[in-house]
Design a protein around this nucleic acid. Structure first.
Lengths: 109, 109
DNA sequence: TTTTTATATCGTAATATTGCAATCTACAAT
DNA sequence: ATTGTAGATTGCAATATTACGATATAAAAA
């Protein structure tokens, strides 16, 4: 098979899975952390920040954008990418709520 | 290739990617949410909660456990699984810090 | 002891992901 | 017009993931 079933789950569950999956690769984590660090839109040299070939980086950027984690637009000769705060907020909220719901029964421990 | 390069990244980056990757599937999101909801260790009927065959569920549980997101131990005839709060805390902290570092320049927007 | 119940493991087919070389696109500079 | 530069797209090989039937295991119930 290889294909993930999505229809039996809620929209929210699928949406969260999509976000997490996009971050389920160290290169994409690194890209996002870099974009946060520089904290600006003029981020032309992402390729130099990573130990990967240019096409590979381009592909990872595409996936991040598709998942809605970054925003990007053409800026003359370069592309201007930056973090989509809304997506990060979604993730923060999700885990904060999750964390709040957990009690400390310390079972299985 | 197909194999993810890990050595060029920091331990933290790889660790976060591993956690996210484990949650990058709606079935595993659903499992985690279910374990949180029931909030107990005696969770025998995870299979019935999911629209997947028993071996598939077992496999997903294995991945969640391997990533450290759930804890499990044998309890007579059934297995007692529950959420590993530490992992959730890690994720919550990561995104909270990330969120705090972001300024609202509203670029690319 | 036989049967049931809960879960794990094995094997395997279908599909997805990762990574890169080669190539293409589009603008900028000469 | 030619060259340079930043980035996307294509094509492909290697590997990983997803899902499940069949089978194994191990404890509980009959």
């Amino acid at each position: 098979m290889g294909a993930t079933k999505t229809d039996p789950y809620t929209k929210k569950q699928n949406a969260m899975a999509t976000l997490m999956k996009a971050l389920g690769h160290p290169a994409r984590i690194t890209i996002l952390e870099y974009l946060m660090k520089v904290d600006t839109c003029i981020c032309s040299d992402i390729v130099n920040e990573l130990p990967l070939a240019q096409p590979t980086v381009s592909q990872h950027l595409k996936e991040l954008k598709h998942a809605g984690l970054i925003k990007g637009s053409i800026e003359g000769n370069t592309i201007c990418y930056c973090v989509n705060e809304k997506a990060i907020e979604q993730l923060r909220t999700y885990f904060t709520q999750f964390s709040n719901h957990l009690t400390d029964k310390n079972c299985c421990g």
